[in-house]
Design a binder for these strands. Structure first.
Lengths: 114, 114
DNA sequence: AGACATACTACATCAGACGTAGTAACGACA
DNA sequence: TGTCGTTACTACGTCTGATGTAGTATGTCT
């Protein structure tokens, strides 16, 4: 199980990735994250919905209400151009972050050497 | 430049890595991190020293005062067995975290496909 | 009727990273 | 002698993202 604090700063990226090709809504995104990660990461509802608010305020996503509903009426979100651009930045940043952190990580089978 | 919020949760790991083979102190660790990452990450003093406090409280490191000094007297830190064990856990966690996040990352040259 | 899935909102808390600021000892240099 | 640069910290406050707890509401399934 992953302590979600590590993921801090990448929840937005995860959501944006799932919005790249088509609009979606909270519950679906939540399910997709769970599936894609084989349940290794399950995003909390409050985390998800506060990410929506934050990202809409930042202009990365736009909401609209969908008609076809199962349960309560849904709010759909679509990614904006600013959102795509932000997503790309985060992907670049990730490569850098990974590079930095891995300087301080010893791979599993090498722990014996100290 | 890396926004340090991403690194959140791994500053302790970085410090522990540098303490694996020998005790060290604030300024030296700070320099080593800067060097190792080619200045891609520079740990802030406040971040570093509050990490020391936190980790000592958690029993991951132990402090002792060193004699040979240039400038003000130093506090040295050495890693404990609990610290080594925690470090190993963080390394494992990192592999998992990386795996999870990378499901949502598009590599640089593939951004054209959406 | 009650469980369960869907679809949220409100409010409070916590912790880690950071900003700002100040203290202090020593050497080097002018 | 003064002050600059390096070393070596401490104190305090702030910000933000993630989380906990709780509640509301609609529909389907049994």
């Amino acid at each position: 199980m992953i302590s979600s604090d590590i993921i801090r700063g990448y929840t937005d990226t995860m959501i944006l990735y799932l919005l790249l090709n088509e609009p979606s809504y909270g519950y679906e995104i939540s399910r997709k994250i769970k599936e894609l990660t084989d349940e290794k990461y399950i995003m909390k509802e409050t985390t998800l919905y506060s990410a929506f608010k934050r990202m809409e305020a930042n202009g990365y996503i736009e909401s609209f209400s969908g008609e076809e509903t199962y349960g309560k009426p849904r709010t759909y979100y679509k990614i904006t151009e600013a959102g795509k651009s932000y997503y790309r930045e985060k992907c670049e940043e990730w490569e850098l972050t990974k590079e930095v952190i891995e300087k301080f990580i010893v791979k599993e089978n090498n722990h014996e050497y100290y």
